[in-house]
Simulated assay, not measured.
Amino acid sequence: MPVKNYIHQIELTPPEQLDTLVENRRVFNLQNCEFNVFESYQQAYRVPLRFNDLVISSMVRGKKVVRIFDDPAFEYLPGETAIVPANEPMFIDFPEARFSDPTQCVALTVDSSYVDQILRYLNEYYNCDKYESNEWTLRFNQYHFTNDNEISGIINKLIRICSSGDKTKNIFADLSLKELFIRLMQSQRLTQATLESANSTNSNRMQYVLHYIQEHLLEKIAIDELSRKAYLSRNMFFKWFKEQFGITPLEYITRERIRLARQLLADKQNSVTSVSQQCGFTDVNYFIRAFKKAEGITPKNWQSTITD
């Protein structure tokens, strides 16, 4: 599993102020959003939950099991976020919650008209590719994911803003919410484009470039060559890629090589040096550093955790 970026611990509700032991709720109201802290102090199963507005939820402590969209239930753990559309029913289990070890999550509910306003503005003034239509939109087929550093950082900032007594907090919350939506959509766009590029190589510039990267992961990939594939100058290509996906092309290439390395390391007959070479890394020490940054442990230690 990739390194998780955790939401900062939030002080638990004092026992004398608890209204319920299952999904006790604290709420902070702002102009365009509502910040909720939910805590559960005892086991419970199939607890129904529904929000009237779009919700961005992040786990802080403990474990939940969530059922949504008629999909299979998934474990919801610290370091993870879920995005759920308005009025979508959820059912939640709390299999490990105890008074001494409660679950805690935060939930930002955002007014749908405010979300629409953000999307209209981005599509009108910040379309990332003037040659192709790449609409800014939220995709709910990617509703549960591991936090990256950017997303966890913005959520932590929003928690501080929403729970503060600062009279200007609505202004700062507005700026941070816009940034959060942009980061979420960039991450979703990259995941979606990577999946689509495996099946369609020439539908658009985005798929063509990502497909080329996937096909040449084991080789040296020159940025100048990617720029030519995209029919952009080197500088414009970097700018275009970062605006599309929120990361640089080099960061994406490294990320995909690490993903491939995990698959190869699952075979314990493959040495770290061999995997490094097979994944297109020319320096094994750089591979080890990059792998540890992404996974939290070295490739050798990661390999030792694999059970036969």
Score class of each variant (00 low, 15 high):
292 K>P: 01
302 W>C: 01
4 K>S: 14
230 A>G: 05
143 Y>H: 01
37 V>D: 04
23 E>Q: 15
153 G>M: 02
133 S>F: 04
34 E>A: 01
108 L>F: 13
195 L>W: 03
168 T>C: 02
302 W>R: 07
22 V>N: 10
221 I>K: 09
284 V>A: 12
228 R>P: 00
279 C>A: 14
121 Y>E: 15
24 N>T: 09
21 L>I: 07
96 E>K: 02
41 Y>K: 13
205 R>H: 00
253 I>R: 06
81 T>A: 08
130 K>I: 07
177 L>E: 06
260 L>I: 10
41 Y>A: 14
305 T>D: 03
201 T>Q: 11
261 A>C: 02
231 Y>M: 04
31 Q>I: 07
223 I>R: 11
260 L>D: 02
65 V>S: 10
33 C>G: 13
130 K>R: 12
203 S>M: 09
23 E>R: 15
213 I>V: 13
61 R>W: 05
209 V>D: 00
244 Q>M: 09
186 Q>H: 00
213 I>Y: 08
147 N>L: 02
175 L>Q: 14
51 F>R: 10
134 N>L: 02
157 K>Q: 08
252 Y>V: 03
115 V>I: 13
146 T>M: 09
119 L>C: 03
254 T>I: 10
187 S>Y: 04
182 I>M: 12
36 N>L: 07
168 T>K: 11
266 A>N: 13
168 T>L: 07
214 Q>I: 08
2 P>S: 10
289 R>D: 04
91 F>E: 15
285 N>Y: 14
107 A>C: 14
18 L>M: 10
130 K>N: 12
165 G>R: 07
76 Y>F: 11
117 Q>I: 05
284 V>Y: 07
208 Y>S: 14
64 K>G: 03
128 C>S: 00
170 N>I: 04
25 R>A: 15
176 S>D: 07
229 K>T: 01
266 A>S: 14
83 I>Y: 12
13 T>K: 14
195 L>P: 01
178 K>G: 09
11 E>H: 12
247 I>M: 06
291 F>S: 00
139 R>Y: 02
212 Y>G: 04
200 S>L: 03
112 S>P: 00
39 E>F: 12
6 Y>E: 12
188 Q>R: 07
87 N>G: 03
218 L>K: 15
96 E>F: 00
176 S>F: 05
272 V>E: 11
241 F>H: 04
308 D>M: 10
188 Q>F: 07
202 N>A: 04
19 D>V: 09
263 Q>A: 01
273 T>N: 11
220 K>L: 06
116 D>L: 06
194 T>F: 01
21 L>N: 11
100 S>A: 07
173 A>V: 08
153 G>D: 11
218 L>N: 15
45 Y>W: 09
172 F>V: 02
139 R>D: 03
190 L>P: 00
245 F>V: 00
287 F>E: 08
237 F>L: 04
258 I>C: 04
278 Q>V: 10
95 P>H: 02
71 D>N: 08
61 R>T: 12
65 V>F: 00
68 I>E: 13
241 F>Y: 05
123 N>Q: 06
255 R>L: 02
35 F>N: 03
